[in-house]
Write a protein that binds this DNA or RNA. Structure first.
Length: 926
DNA sequence: CATCCGACAGGAG
DNA sequence: CTCCTGTCGGATG
């Protein structure tokens, strides 16, 4: 159950008549407990409660219902119950059907309210359903309730008005929903004259069968679109005339209203009954945007972005600086005034704004600083000088764009109430004076300079996209020309495999043919390229959260030279961290925050998360595109080693639908003779097999044995299955392989042995998984091989030097090591090795293998468990590092920083004459 | 033809 | 569910 479903269940529960005996079970059911769990709890033996009327669920909650007026005493009894302690209960709850009290025993937080109101606090109990991920969400019960109900209304309205679901009418539908939300907010915050006026008017004026709901609502909208002085000739009915003139774009355009069924009408009234004063524009926005998205509707709020994460972008981008200036100003009125003037001209531009949460948070944070300035200057009730229209955004989807503007309007009102008071907020709120300054369109196709024109440069273009489709939105001038512009946001990430044809074309267009392999770039890279161009013209600063892969492996040479050529540097960054997300069973994505701009005199800041969840800042003169401190050297892939090393090859890609691969226990089922088994079965290793000692087998048929092999039924069936899989693949390469369905794509195998490196492996190990396999073992595409190579190669791969290099320059799977021959092995700089060196290293590699042997049958995973690595194996690696590092610098390196410094220095030297591409050479000098 | 990546994916605890 | 850690095959140049 997700949070929205739980909210619905809880609201349903409270609408039922209160049943003393049943309530505890109904409550548990509402929080997603299975019928069987509850059935068990009903039996006296499973219910551990020692309180009258109590139900206790182990490690979760102790609930008791009681007679009227006894709630306080009952809660105390629950708290003091020995069973509460012994069963590690997290929550206690007491209710008599009139009042409701509960306590979170971990945090000590309490809830006490009327029974009917407890659904408003359902977020308090979300940990019961295993939802603990995001604290903000837990505290946003209102936003979840509102989202769930708006979602139901939206779906119902589309059902009644199928034509509104078409692409052409969707914007009308979305605009209509935005108006509704505004009205709900307005009627609960005195913006309308009278509590609940909007909902009450619809309730009274439209009949229960809903035949005229549409008329009533559109009449109200018409009123809100009519100036007071024009009211007389508008001939509005008396009940509509009491509504203020709102407009501001919100009630202009089509004020058409969809048809309302009886159900839709009741949903509408139900939503109006919520307390919209509680809305959090930032959180609500990110949840509500899923409502209009047919694909996302099932997973409401999944892409929720938390405030702390948003601040990782905004603080280092400019808010920290504003706060420093505030600190510096102290109570000096002149300095405070200058800061306020500066802030009034700051523009924040989010070219992927979604429902505007970056803009809303930036606005609220700036208002907080401004309020402090005004307080220190003794001007507490002063009107804000931060214009809402300085918060600009571009958003592809129509509905979020609509919501973004609304969220900003609501944020402005809430800030006014908070810092200046209800009366002042109301006095200046209506009519809304701004046009729509959130542009709905494709940010990669639009010209950012015209949407967010730089101050004082005289650049003013018309907003039309690169494909010359005019934008039917008015141009809005910024207030206060001449300020700073900060670009921020969380643009969409999409790996090259998943991009549409159009998205690929956009990236290619943006790079204008400057990059030969742009087809490998993540979609998010487009925002960095656009931002760099914008910065080149305007000198602003930009920071985005992005998938960390744009700072890894092959993406680095594809993207970053363009950014650097535009005169940008990385000014600050957060290295990889997990982006929290509300979908509990879905893997999160790993991101980095990267800020770019023209070089400044202040040091670069590199933020890293430590193991305890804290943040460490390191400063330096420069940040590399791999998000390390140091000179920016970019490593490009190569197809041959720059050092004197053996050739490393990619493993065999099966592309067989699993039909040529076998688990060891499947081999006997083939019914082969011993001789046949020796001819047709080989061992095959991927990363997992190699690291965890699984060891699969594969069918191995040399062309000369084909006839003999196909005569065996079990083998022929498998070959036929492979052919079908390959023919049905959308990949042309796979189709071609159908001709030799009896074989893996490649049939490489060592004549004596092969040195194996795992393709993907955990970043917690101190050394890369590398080892030796015999000539009956082949490899999948998840492993690399040096066939019949001298053993000293293995000593290099097993070294600390190599793992630092791989960790820095190769791609990653999230944060895992991902080995690559082209990016990591072929680029690895090694000084010339003498025969003596090679002999020493061979000895080291043998010692490592022997040390492992001594622990047979431990797997690589066992042996290299960071907490349990055997001492003799560790010693063998120490000796290996000692020998290798002496070859590099005559002594051991002190740490990885020193290792990388040396490796980059050597790489630069070794590649200087190797004919680099001009692009890479330029990048290397930055 | 070789290989990089995944707003991931699947198993273990 | 949360933590841990690497499959598999398409897309690309």
């Amino acid at each position: 159950m997700n949070a929205v479903e739980i909210e619905e269940a809880v609201s349903e529960l409270v609408d039922q008549p209160f049943d003393t005996a049943e309530f505890p079970f109904a409550f548990l059911a509402a929080f997603g407990n299975k019928e069987t769990t509850i059935k068990r709890l009903r039996t006296a033996s499973a219910n551990a409660s020692d309180v009258t009327g109590g139900v206790l669920q182990k490690s979760n909650i102790h609930i008791a219902t009681c007679s009227e007026g006894m709630v306080g005493e009952t809660l105390i009894a629950l708290r003091n119950s020995p069973k509460t302690t012994s069963n590690k209960v997290k929550f206690i709850l007491a209710t008599d059907g009139l009042s409701f009290e509960a306590e979170d025993l971990t945090s000590g937080e309490t809830v006490a309210c009327a029974y009917a109101k407890f659904p408003e606090h359902f977020g308090f109990f979300l940990p019961l359903a295993g939802i603990t991920t995001v604290k903000q969400i837990r505290e946003s019960s209102f936003d979840i309730r509102a989202t769930g109900r708006l979602n139901k209304l939206y779906v119902e309205l589309l059902k009644d008005n199928p034509d509104w679901a078409t692409a052409a009418r969707r914007p009308d539908m979305n605009h209509f929903m935005a108006r509704l939300i505004f009205c709900f907010f307005a009627e609960d915050t005195d913006i309308f004259n009278g509590e609940g006026l909007f909902t009450a008017t619809i309730d009274q004026m439209s009949d229960r069968e809903s035949s005229n709901t549409r008329y009533v609502i559109s009449t109200l909208f018409r009123a809100m679109n009519t100036r007071i002085e024009d009211r007389a000739k508008a001939e509005l009915p008396r009940w509509a005339n009491g509504f203020p003139y709102v407009n501001g774009g919100l009630f202009s355009g089509s004020t058409e209203v969809p048809k309302f069924s009886k159900i839709a009408r009741s949903y509408l009234l139900h939503i109006g009954g919520l307390n919209w004063k509680m809305i959090n524009p930032d959180i609500f926005g990110s949840m509500i945007q899923a409502v209009a998205d047919d694909d996302e509707r099932g997973a409401l709020g999944m892409h929720y972005t938390s405030v702390p994460n948003i601040l990782k972008v905004l603080n280092p981008l400019f808010l920290d600086d504003l706060r420093d200036r505030l600190e510096e100003a102290g109570t000096n009125p002149r300095m405070l005034l200058n800061l306020r003037r500066r802030m009034s001209r700051i523009r924040v531009f989010d070219p992927a704004c979604g429902s505007g949460n970056f803009l809303v948070i930036a606005y609220k944070q700036m208002r907080e600083i401004e309020a402090e300035i005004n307080k220190r200057r003794g001007e507490s009730d002063r009107r804000t000088e931060i214009p809402l229209t300085n918060f600009r955004g571009i958003e592809l989807r129509d509905f979020p764009a609509e919501i973004a503007r609304l969220a900003l309007i609501i944020a402005e009102y809430q800030c006014d109430v908070l810092y200046r008071g209800q009366k002042e907020a109301l006095a200046e709120f209506l009519p809304l004076d701004a046009e729509n300054w959130i542009v709905s369109g494709n940010a990669l196709r639009l010209d950012w300079l015209s949407i967010c024109p730089p101050a004082g440069t005289g650049i003013k273009l018309h907003a039309e996209d690169l494909f010359h489709t005019p934008l039917d939105q008015p141009q809005i001038d910024f207030e206060n020309e001449g300020g700073e512009t900060y670009i921020c946001g969380n643009p969409p990430y999409l790996g090259f495999t998943w991009q549409s044809r159009e998205q690929k074309a956009e990236i290619r267009e943006l790079l204008g043919g400057r990059s030969s392999a742009s087809g490998f770039l993540d979609y998010v890279a487009g925002w960095f390229v656009k931002a760099a161009e914008y910065i080149d013209r305007t000198g602003s600063v930009a920071a985005f959260v992005a998938t960390n892969s744009i700072c890894q492996g092959q993406s680095v040479p594809l993207l970053w030279p363009h950014v650097f050529e535009a005169g940008c540097q990385i000014l600050f960054a957060y290295t990889s961290f997990k982006w929290s997300n509300l979908a509990s069973n879905k893997a999160g994505v790993t991101v980095a925050v990267i800020g770019i701009g023209r070089p400044t005199s202040s040091p670069r800041k590199l933020f890293e998360h430590d193991d305890t969840g804290g943040v460490v800042v390191r400063m330096g003169a420069s940040i590399t595109p791999y998000l390390t401190l140091g000179q920016s050297i970019i490593i490009e892939k190569r197809n041959a080693p720059i050092s004197d090393l053996s050739v490393m090859e990619f493993g065999n890609k099966p592309t067989d639908g699993g039909h040529l691969l076998l688990r060891p226990d499947e081999v006997p089922l083939l019914g082969l003779s011993q001789k046949e088994e020796a001819t047709f079965i080989r061992r095959i290793y991927g990363s997992d097999d190699f690291i965890n000692g699984g060891g699969r087998c594969c069918v191995w048929i040399e062309d000369t044995h084909l006839g003999e092999a196909l005569a065996i039924d079990t083998i022929r069936e498998r070959v036929d299955a492979v052919r079908r899989v390959r023919l049905s693949s959308p990949d042309k390469g796979a189709n071609a392989l159908a001709k030799r369905a009896h074989q893996l794509k490649l049939m490489r195998i060592g004549t004596r042995h092969a040195i194996v490196v795992a393709g993907v492996s955990s970043e917690h190990r101190s050394f890369l998984p590398v080892g030796l396999v015999d000539n009956r073992t082949t490899l999948t595409n998840l492993a690399f091989a040096l066939y019949d190579a001298p053993l000293w190669n293995m000593a290099l791969i097993a070294s600390s030097l190599h793992i630092s290099w791989i960790a820095t320059v190769c791609g990653k799977l999230e944060t895992r090591y991902r080995y690559s021959n082209t990016l990591g092995w072929n680029t690895f700089p090694v000084p010339p090795l003498t025969e003596k060196n090679k002999a020493d290293l061979t000895r080291c590699a043998e010692d490592i293998l022997l040390a492992r042997e001594a622990h047979f049958p431990a797997t690589i995973a066992d042996l290299y468990d960071p907490d349990a690595m055997p001492a003799d194996l560790r010693a063998a690696h120490e000796r290996n590092d000692e020998v290798l590092e002496r070859i590099y610098i005559g002594r051991r390196f002190r740490n990885d920083t020193e290792r990388l410094e040396k490796l980059f220095e050597l790489y630069t030297k070794m590649t200087a004459n190797l004919g680099k591409s001009p692009k890479a050479r330029r990048a290397a000098t930055i």
